[in-house]
Design a protein around this nucleic acid. Structure first.
Length: 268
DNA sequence: ATGGTTGAGCGTCAA
């Protein structure tokens, strides 16, 4: 039963924080690392950084200034080409690959869902509308592929779906990331064929966060976090789930991201 | 109710 570990992290600029990848590897020893907000165009992607850490297989989709996703792997990857250009924006928010694990390929989807701006109203804030449309489109796409298996979906989904995925359910009900249209949309997407791998380990009545705003001076003391980063697996993999880590200490890494890495281990 | 901080890249915009 070899362990297979997948980590996901919104790195908030790969070029700025590429040295922190070493800390991530030391802490989690993942076989695959999925990154979001790489903020680097493909021709400038620093392939030598993951290579030097033992991740010679990389696929990435980036652009100048914003967004961008990447998968770094110890195991061979085959880029998955079939997915749509979500909302027709060409904005580098999804990349998928088949990971060549000893027990056969695992299909891995890495998403960076739009943050959605500040005002939770489609009419006033097109970014909120884009976010809801993105989630609905992704849900529809996975729903059409009924019966898919041996798959994982990870990433910064920018939505905290459960009551205890935020520090105050009541105070955040009208705050983008925890509004009912978002949480309903995300759970409907998940219901197309995934289980929440981290909530498999942590009961729904326990607080769990993966993101703390830069705007809180003492993030640990105020602890106003949200669980925005997720790992989903298809039900056929649920029995193989053996461990999870939310690497909270990473929030204190020098010049760290506002998101912390999340890692799930499967015994395949 | 407001402001608080960070990154990219030079204007502010996005988060």
């Amino acid at each position: 039963m070899p362990a297979f570990r997948v980590a996901t992290w919104n790195i908030n600029s790969l070029r700025l924080r590429q040295t922190l990848l070493k800390e991530l590897v030391a802490a989690l020893d993942p076989d695959v690392i999925c990154l979001q907000e790489t903020k680097v165009p493909d021709p400038l992607f620093p392939v030598e950084a993951p290579e030097a850490l033992g991740y010679p297989h990389t696929v990435y989709r980036g652009m100048k200034g914003y967004n961008g996703v990447a998968i770094l792997s110890r195991l061979p990857l085959e880029l998955h080409e079939g997915a749509p250009d979500w909302c027709g924006k060409g904005d580098c928010r999804h990349i998928a690959a088949a990971v060549d694990t000893p027990g056969g390929p695992i299909e891995l989807h890495n998403f960076y869902v739009p943050a959605g701006g500040d005002v939770p109203d489609r009419g006033q804030n097109p970014k909120y509308g884009h976010k809801l449309d993105f989630v609905a489109e992704a849900r529809a796409w996975f729903a059409e592929r009924a019966g898919f298996a041996r798959s994982m979906l990870v990433g910064d989904l920018n939505i905290a779906p459960l009551e205890h995925d935020v520090w105050s359910h009541k105070q955040l009900l009208n705050v983008v990331s925890h509004t009912p249209p978002e949480t309903d949309g995300l759970l409907a997407w998940q219901d197309t064929g995934f289980v929440d791998a981290v909530r498999h380990f942590v009961p729904a009545d326990q607080k769990l966060y993966t993101w703390w705003s830069y705007r809180n001076r003492d993030w640990r003391a105020s602890d106003r976090g949200r669980r925005l980063d997720h790992v989903w697996v298809t039900p056929d993999l649920q029995g193989a789930l053996s461990r999870y880590v939310v690497l909270k200490d990473a929030r204190d890494w020098p010049q760290g991201s506002d998101h912390v890495p999340v890692c799930v281990e499967l015994s395949l």
